[in-house]
Computed example of a mutant assay.
Amino acid sequence: MNRQKLTALTCHALACLLFPIATTLGFQAFTAIFGATQSRGVAIGLAVQLIFAAFVMTNALIAITKNLKAKIVLVSALVLANLLYLLPQHPLRALFFAGLSGGLSLLAIYAAMHYGSKAKSA
């Protein structure tokens, strides 16, 4: 395995580790600002697990893909899937998870490209 792939896998694994931390911090901030949430519609605990599983699988695919356009299409599909799944009943959570998953994935792509190019030149 070459150094660029290892860098990409490391960056995307770090993004997968940051996802549950950001989810917990976001939920605590929402609760502190707006108070306790109302339970309705989709069982959000299972929904978060499904979103996290999709996030991990998509980031694994992004890490092994070489084409930048394909990576952007995968991130876009992940964001769109989050919005379609949560938007009807949980609009704030839909925006949060779509932004979080898209932002972390794009950050991992940028970091992998940045550190991968340094590894290539060294």
Rank of each mutant, 00 (worst) to 15 (best):
A112D: 02
L106V: 00
F96E: 01
G116M: 03
H90K: 09
H90C: 04
A111E: 05
A108C: 09
A94P: 13
G116V: 03
Q89V: 09
P91T: 13
L86S: 08
G102C: 08
G103D: 08
L95M: 15
L83K: 03
S117C: 13
L106K: 00
F96Y: 14
G116L: 04
L95T: 14
F96V: 01
L104Q: 03
I109H: 05
A81F: 12
A112N: 01
Y85H: 03
A111L: 15
L83P: 09
L83A: 08
H90M: 06
L83N: 07
A111K: 02
L84E: 02
A81M: 14
M113A: 09
G99R: 09
L95W: 13
L107T: 05
Y115E: 09
Y85F: 13
S101N: 14
P88T: 13
A111G: 07
S105D: 06
R93G: 12
G103N: 07
R93D: 12
N82E: 13
L107F: 04
G102Q: 04
L87Q: 06
A108L: 08
H90D: 09
A81L: 14
F97R: 00
L84I: 04
L107C: 08
Y110M: 07
Y110P: 00
M113D: 12
L95A: 15
F96N: 03
Y115F: 15
M113Y: 02
A111Q: 07
F96R: 01
H114E: 10
L95R: 11
Q89F: 08
H114M: 07
L104I: 00
Y115V: 07
A94C: 13
L107M: 05
A111W: 03
A112I: 01
A108F: 06
R93E: 11
R93L: 14
Y110Q: 06
L100N: 08
A112H: 01
Q89S: 10
R93W: 13
L86F: 08
A111N: 04
S117Y: 15
A81S: 14
A81G: 07
H90E: 10
L84F: 04
Y115D: 08
H90P: 10
L95F: 14
I109Y: 01
L100G: 08
F97D: 00
L100R: 04
A81Y: 06
S101F: 12
L84K: 01
N82C: 15
G99K: 04
L84S: 06
A111S: 14
H114D: 07
A111T: 07
G103R: 06
A111I: 05
I109L: 10
H90Q: 12
H114Y: 11
L87H: 01
P91W: 12
L84C: 11
I109E: 12
A94Q: 11
S105I: 05
L95G: 15
G99E: 07
A98L: 03
A98T: 00
S117P: 10
H114N: 06
H114W: 11
A108H: 05
P91I: 13
A112E: 02
A112S: 15
A94K: 09
A94R: 09
L100M: 15
L106M: 05
H90L: 13
G99N: 02
F97T: 03
Y85W: 03
